[in-house]
Design a protein around this nucleic acid. Structure first.
Length: 1109
RNA sequence: UGGCUCGUAGCUCAGUUGGUUAGAGCGCUACACUGAUAAUGUAGAGGUCCCCAGUUCAAAUCUGGGCGGGCCAACCA
């Protein structure tokens, strides 16, 4: 028993300590145990958002994983069982692009230079390229997640569940095929994803031929418009003005869209190209774009072809809604764009909310084939669709002179004649162009061919998410979003504006769409399992085994329809977001693995929904959305109850981290240098997780110093003396009420802290929890409790008070271990193990197997905490007075004086009097009553209570109050109210309407904070000076002891060189000095050879110390 | 361009329902303390609370409009 010692490190180095703890966890299977020892306990369900191991982990991964880990560890300690299944996202464009770059090929080469089979094999290898790195960072940062049995999105089982989901959707008629307008590169012959479009450099400023063109209104509608504005003129031709930057879309025009609430005007003017009189309609607000102010109502007669100013006059005005339904003549009719081919009722004016008066004419040329908005509004208004451009980007046959011409120079023809220009010229000649000019704007280009993209109708498969929009909105309101605004704002708005989910991707490495169709399209099946596919195989199917469900094998599967026809797979792959969104089901291979005995298990996957997920805000419309959408579509449920959306990690200047800027932070290096715990602590306490974080390594250093060094120092202080006294917590537990004021105070604060931490953690506010711990460790434990209690640990016998001190400090350290365990899993475990190894108080071998501390209400004493706060304030004030007086703390002073503004203050301060006296080295504290003449009082209005009552008079009243004399203040205090005259009115104020503080005590040094005022008597008596000298001597000798590396317990004998000033102090304080410095003898010597020189009162003298034991 | 979010000391951040001297830590300077000592205390310097307007007796705080950073979605006629 006697040789049991708390271990103290030679050097405190967090990364080294972490390595040893990491080893413990491996050897002891701590993670597995922490889950297993909660068997039978309620589950806390967590989903891991799958990262892609195709890239290196960055520091931003460390922040979200810290968050996840912290919550899971906390919930585990709260008694829940928290399974943490890892996952890998393995499909998708970035992986394909990576492989293509590596092999130096493009998409066109796939199937030519490399088979799809080989290509997919490369992708399969690439997705786990950095898996080792990921596993490494996961381990080193202390992220506990089960890496042994992860879900992997490319595995057959995983994909089979995705198919099951798709079939369910298909059954509910939520899966359908339709055209959609998508970015398309005619040069590359491929559709582009938004991701590709967002590659840097894709948007370029280009000059295009823009044209404001005139659509001729039908004669009937013409008359109707004229009569609606009471226009008596005989006008038989009115033109609707519309603007386009892509004249090649004009032959495909099927409608004109106006804003229902926008004002439009009918204008009489001349056509600038034909110079003929013309009547046109455009938005009132855009008149200035086409006409000069001075041209309004100018002389029409004087106009000639040479005139610079074209006169115009407004004949009438109407709302866009009044134009709705007006018909117009087709602008560029050909055989291939006849109305009957559109499938709708084209060439009408329709209304659309997206119309603005920012530019153009306020009337939008609408070609449903070549714009997403156009398509949407066209569908809504039954315009039909006409696509006069083929997939190579050229006009189809049957478009007259334009047939076969490319709409942009896709083939790099040397003598390319811009078809847009030709169309504009044609319209000018016909008097149906009003303005043709070059227009500069930014336009997306294909990142591979550098050619402009076009928007083009492509076949695609959709999920009808809009069918459950209301339900998604409703269920979203039940989700606990952190921060709340992300759920209500960003996510809520997104849901409100939801469109159907476009699932299709024309790629190679991804989950195949399990839909087969007969060639005539009459029969269609969506397969929900591999078994189902196998049961429907056509005897001619080249592929029957399906060992790998990816392309190209899946495309070789031919099914047999119920009527016996061959069915071929739709070639699409599905959006990777579907992969991750279906992860709650697919990670368990639901429903294929569900036990058949449990009906509950068969209808709902296990661990569904999640209690908690966390990822970056960028996932709001990504993973958070797809999880939510699928859960609602499939199970009419939320997928997660709480979601934390963390912000981004920026560099220390607030710039985005990017490889290009070279400001990325290497998480491996950071953790290696500073330790995972310091890094985690910094990430959590520096800013709320959802605020963006300016990452600065200095902040980690600070966390290391501030929290971990302080805690470690506190521990070594404890260990140092506990080892001397052999404290092992074997003595009977001293009940808290029997401990002294300081002990009860720190225990009370500790339990208040437990409550605070728990509240914040339950509310997913780890930043607040961490900051509360920071403050406790620094302000309360280290700089107050330990500092003030030091003597109790190294003075006196090993009896009750000392044991109480040990027990108290031990409890604080042990509890803190548990509180910080979720944040700093390594250090907390190290400290816990060190403490517990000696005390054997608990049976757990790791802090992570412990329960979270409970708040013991009885140990909390708010009064005491308040009193101690008063003591801390008083000390701080008195120290500042000492500083002013330049009398060092070692010099005792006679007394401090505290005026009592509030009578209850005396009792409070009396109870902490000893603490203040010790801390300040003063003999006494004296109180002077409030009515004492010595105190000069200061009065100030209490704006909060008075403001609401006084209103506009507030300022004047406050001024009056500040002018009150001492006598008036005394009267107010006595009567508890006071009346004064102001502008002939009497105003009554109550005691609660003012704040009275003491201002000054004549003849004394005074300082105050809030209602507390203190004064210090700095008169020195000879006795005080003697004592000061005695203390000075003690201090110097202690320093020598320390410098000579004496043991704490070594006893000494001391010889001091003669010095008159020290004679009295030495005699009068002989025993005091000896006790302090553990001296057996202490005497003067007239002359000394050896010894250490010290300085007392600016006098140099020698001291000689020898060990006596 | 739209939605969301952030903007307070040189840096990182607090700042309750609006209440009058706007705080803390780090960093800097000076002094002090010292058997926890790469710690600590006290003091000093350091502010257009992003800007403008409004509401109010009173605005860092509420409202409107800008500006700047970030994320997401677009980039259109």
């Amino acid at each position: 028993m006697a040789d049991k010692k708390y271990s103290i490190l030679k050097q405190f180095h967090l990364p080294t300590l972490e390595a040893s703890i990491l080893n413990d966890w491996k050897v002891e299977n701590t993670f597995e145990k922490s889950v297993a020892n909660r068997n039978g306990k309620p589950a806390f369900v967590f989903y891991e958002g799958p990262p892609s191991a195709n890239g290196m982990p960055g520091i931003h991964h460390v922040i979200s994983r810290t968050l996840k880990d912290m919550v899971c560890r906390y919930k585990t300690m709260q008694g829940f069982q928290v399974n943490r299944k890892a996952g890998w996202d393995t499909h998708g464009l970035p992986i394909e692009l990576g492989v293509e770059k590596e092999l130096g090929i493009t998409k066109e080469d796939i199937g030519v230079k490399i088979t799809v089979e080989e290509y997919n094999q490369k992708c399969r290898e690439a997705v786990v390229r950095f898996k080792d790195k990921w596993d490494d960072i996961t381990e080193k940062m202390g992220y506990w997640v089960d890496l042994n049995d992860p879900y992997v999105t490319y595995k057959n089982d995983y994909i089979e569940t995705l198919w099951w989901c798709l079939k369910e959707l298909h059954k509910k008629d939520y899966l359908y095929k339709s055209v959609s307008i998508q970015p398309y590169s005619p040069a590359a012959g491929t559709g582009l994803s938004s991701h590709e479009l967002n590659q840097p450099g894709c948007y370029k400023d280009v000059k295009d031929t823009s044209a404001t063109v005139l659509f001729k209104m039908s004669e009937n509608d013409c008359q109707q418009i004229l009569s609606s504005i009471n226009c008596a003129l005989a006008i038989d031709e009115i033109y609707l003005m519309a603007w386009t930057t892509t004249p090649w879309t004009l032959p495909s025009n099927l409608g004109l869209t106006v804003g229902p609430n926008i004002n439009y005007v009918l204008v009489k003017t001349y056509n600038p190209y034909t110079h003929k009189l013309q009547y046109v309609i455009l938005a009132e607000l855009l008149l200035a774009k086409y006409f000069k102010d001075e041209a309004e109502n100018a002389d029409f007669e004087a106009y000639t072809a040479e005139s610079k100013v074209i006169p115009y006059s407004v004949l009438g005005m109407f709302k866009g809604s009044e134009l709705e339904g007006i018909r117009y003549e087709q602008l560029l009719p050909f055989e291939s764009n006849q109305a009957s081919l559109s499938g709708g009722d084209p060439f009408r004016v329709i209304c659309g909310d997206f119309v603005t008066t920012e530019d153009g004419t306020g009337i939008v040329h609408t070609a449903p084939a070549f714009g997403a908005d156009d398509y949407k509004v066209g569908q809504k208004n039954n315009l039909g669709i006409i696509t006069l451009v083929d997939r190579e980007g050229k006009f189809i046959e049957g478009t007259g002179e334009y047939s076969g011409r490319y709409v942009k120079n896709y083939k790099d023809e040397k003598n390319y004649q811009d078809v847009n220009v030709d169309i504009a010229i044609e319209l000018k000649k016909r008097g149906q162009a009003f303005k043709v000019e070059k227009y500069e704007h930014s336009y997306p280009h294909c990142w591979r061919t550098d050619k402009p993209i076009i928007y083009y109708p492509l076949d695609a498969w959709f999920i009808r998410t809009t069918a459950v929009k209301e339900r998604m909105v409703e269920l979203n309101k039940t989700i606990n979003w952190k921060p709340k605004a992300t759920g209500e704002g960003r996510f809520g708005n997104w849901l409100e504006n939801m469109v159907d989910w476009n699932l299709s991707r024309s790629r190679f490495w991804g989950t195949p769409l399990p839909v087969w169709r007969t060639e005539d399209g009459t029969e269609e099946i969506c397969c929900g399992s591999i078994a189902e596919i196998k049961s429907m195989l056509h005897e001619d199917s080249p592929e029957k085994e399906l060992k790998d469900v990816h392309k190209p094998y899946i495309d070789q599967v031919i099914l047999k329809s119920p009527s016996g026809q061959k069915m071929y797979r739709e070639p699409d792959l599905i959006d990777v977001w579907f992969d991750s969104g279906a992860m709650p089901y697919a990670q368990w291979h639901f429903p294929f693995e569900a036990s058949s005995t449990d009906p509950q298990q068969r209808s709902l996957p296990k661990d569904f929904p999640a209690d908690f997920i966390a990822e970056g805000v960028d996932q709001t419309r990504g993973w958070f959305y797809t999880l939510h959408a699928l859960a609602v579509l499939l199970f009419d449920s939320v997928a997660y109850k709480t979601v934390v959306a963390n912000g981004f990690v920026l560099d220390k200047f607030g710039n985005k981290m990017s490889k290009r800027l070279g400001n990325v932070v290497d998480p491996f290096e950071t953790i290696h240098t500073y330790g995972a715990d310091a890094t985690r602590w910094y990430l959590v306490t520096n800013a709320s997780p959802w605020d963006s974080l300016k990452f600065d390594l200095k902040g980690i250093e600070e966390a290391q110093r501030k929290l971990f060094n302080t805690l470690y120092n506190t521990y070594t202080f404890f260990a140092l003396y506990a080892n001397v006294d052999q404290f092992t917590f074997e003595e009977t537990y001293i009940p808290i009420p029997q401990r002294n004021e300081m002990d009860r105070w720190i225990i009370s604060s500790l339990h208040t802290l437990i409550g605070t931490v728990q509240t914040h953690m339950d509310d997913y506010e780890p930043t607040k929890a961490g900051r509360a711990i920071d403050e406790f460790v620094d302000q309360h434990l280290s700089n107050w409790y330990v500092r003030l209690c030091r003597r109790r640990f190294w003075k006196g016998e090993y009896e009750t008070d000392k044991i109480a001190a040990y027990q108290t400090l031990y409890e604080c350290l042990e509890t803190l271990c548990k509180l910080i365990a979720p944040f700093a899993p390594f250090f907390s475990d190290w400290l816990y193990k060190n403490l517990n190894a000696i005390s054997q108080r608990e049976t757990q071998t790791s802090v992570h197997l412990c329960d979270f501390p409970l708040v013991i209400i009885d140990d909390i004493d708010h009064d005491l905490e308040q009193r101690m706060g008063l003591a801390q304030d008083a000390c701080s004030l008195l120290l500042s007075l000492r500083k002013k007086s330049t009398i060092k703390v070692r010099q005792p002073l006679q007394k401090a004086i505290i005026p009592l503004i509030d009578p209850s203050m005396e009792v409070k301060i009396r109870s902490v009097e000893d603490i203040i006296k010790n801390e300040l080295n003063i003999k006494d504290i004296e109180f002077i009553a409030a009515d004492n003449d010595l105190i000069k009082k200061k009065i100030k209005a209490n704006f909060k209570t008075l403001g609401s009552r006084m209103g506009a008079k507030m300022k004047a009243v406050a001024h009056e109050i500040s002018l009150m004399t001492s006598a008036q203040i005394a009267e107010l205090e006595k009567q508890e109210s006071f009346v004064f005259e102001m502008d002939g009115e009497s105003v009554t104020i109550l005691l609660s309407d003012v704040e009275i503080t003491s201002d000054d005590i004549p003849g004394l040094l005074v300082a105050s904070k809030g209602s507390l005022t203190v004064a210090l008597d700095i008169n020195l008596t000879p006795a005080l000076i003697e004592e000061g000298l005695a203390r000075e001597l003690v201090n110097k000798i202690q320093k020598i002891r320390k410098d000579s590396n004496f043991e704490l317990t070594d006893r000494i004998s001391v010889l001091i060189e003669d010095y008159e000033m020290l004679k009295n102090p030495l005699n009068n304080f002989y025993s005091y000095i000896c006790t302090e410095i553990l001296a057996d003898s202490l005497s003067f010597s007239p002359e000394m050879q050896d010894g250490t020189e010290i300085e007392v009162n600016d006098h140099k003298l020698k001291v000689f110390i020898t060990k006596t034991n």
